[in-house]
Write a protein that binds this DNA or RNA. Structure first.
Ligand SMILES: [Mn+2]
Ligand SMILES: [Mn+2]
Ligand SMILES: [Mn+2]
Ligand SMILES: [Mn+2]
Lengths: 228, 228
DNA sequence: TTGATTTGTTAGTCATGGCTAACTTTTTTA
DNA sequence: TAAAAAAGTTAGCCATGACTAACAAATCAA
């Protein structure tokens, strides 16, 4: 049981690939994740991905057959979850203590998540009194590496007349997040779907006495829980 | 006045070299800093240093003549001071809020100092209410890049009978810092030099009703202000 | 089922930042 | 002042992680 995985000798790049693969596999639960999808997600060429995947396979973080789909080993998942834990804890810290808005935190957390010190992250967790969710509503994995996916559906999946609560947003785009705040939405907002327009998939929603029309693309990035 | 130096495109390595050069020039105020001294300080080969210095010269951070000594431009100094500010603010944060001891902070701060976000560091500064000194007693440069050297002398420079106050310690060695704490010394400790032994340069010191013998090497890393 | 398209792989190149070994210049010292 | 030593430089190599271009395999669609 000489668990050397604690020494964590991974480079920033290796970490980024593992986290991306995890996010595609588990969070977006794409049935099959191939080389090119991963390349796309990371904005690198398929050749770069192929190369890195080869390395991660010899290091036992990734498994796949030639020309086959990619999967993570338990070791690979564990690394990814730790990165997500760090990322979300830092985002929470930046918002709650350093006056960052939710659209500003992701970029900086992308850097901070690669800092190597388990004491740092566990103490940060303790300092904030073990927060459960990050500023975008996502669940923060705990120190034991337990990972839970928030049960959520896209706002775009609702039918006319349905009522829901905003529980999370995709944190990838600064512009999207600014947009969400600007129209007055936030975590916990109650939203009613007034109308679903078939023509362009836009939907009309009501919240806090406001009525807004949003696009399908927008609604795909807003995650909700149905009410009643 | 299109100040592009704010964009700060420097790599971690480039930053490390600039900070090291600044520390040799200004903090240790070595009269002349050459290629090999810098290489030694950074634990890299003279060839690597030569290479990097060449690059930093074309980028206008460093000046030197062929076979001559190295110096920083104003731009180079400014980068270095910002790194030192970040380093010391993070060390302070780790000590004051995250239960790190003063021997644990340096290594993590070496990583954190390279995080690129001026908002992050200025907000961290504000959050801690603009601390003036880091856990090792050194002055933290302010947001305007003003850098001040703490007026300090080495404990080893004192004569028998002299009394002083410990105001700073070298933060480079974990073992040294642990040693300092273990024998009961800390910032602000009052120390009296009881005896200076010519044979091996060891000195006998008294503080808090304790008497200890310390080596010259130890006393070189303890910085004090003479009292009375 | 076969041809087109998509997906994955390989080869070869580049930039960065390390290294060693060999060389040149400068400085020291005898 | 001339060796010797030290300091600085150069050439050539390596690993990492990007890239493009060319090719092979798998999948989709007619
Ligand atoms: Mn994020
Ligand atoms: Mn998030
Ligand atoms: Mn330090
Ligand atoms: Mn550093």
């Amino acid at each position: 049981m000489t668990n050397k995985s604690n020494l964590n000798n991974l480079t920033k790049s290796e970490e980024d690939y593992l986290k991306a693969l995890f996010q595609l596999l588990v969070e977006d639960d794409s049935e099959k994740v191939g080389n090119n999808l991963l390349a796309d997600y990371l904005n690198v060429s398929p050749a770069s991905t192929n190369n890195m995947v080869k390395k991660l396979k010899t290091k036992n973080y990734v498994v796949s057959e030639k020309y086959g789909k990619l999967d993570l080993t338990e070791q690979g998942k564990s690394i990814a979850v730790r990165l997500i834990r760090k990322h979300r804890l830092w985002e929470t810290f930046l918002c709650k203590y350093l006056n960052f808005s939710w659209d500003e935190v992701h970029e900086v957390a992308e850097q901070l998540e690669h800092i190597k010190s388990s004491k740092l992250i566990d103490e940060l967790d303790r300092f904030m009194d073990f927060p459960e969710k990050d500023p975008h509503g996502e669940i923060i994995p705990n120190a034991d590496g337990e990972y839970a996916v928030l049960p959520k559906i896209m706002l775009s999946s609702l039918a006319e007349g349905e009522v829901c609560k905003l529980i999370a947003v995709d944190d990838g785009s600064v512009n999207f997040l600014k947009y969400v705040s600007e129209i007055g939405l936030a975590l916990s907002s109650e939203i009613k779907v007034i109308e679903v327009r078939e023509f362009d998939n836009s939907i009309r929603i009501q919240f806090n006495d406001t009525i807004e029309t949003v696009t399908r693309k927008f609604a795909d990035n807003v995650f909700v829980k149905k009410l009643v």
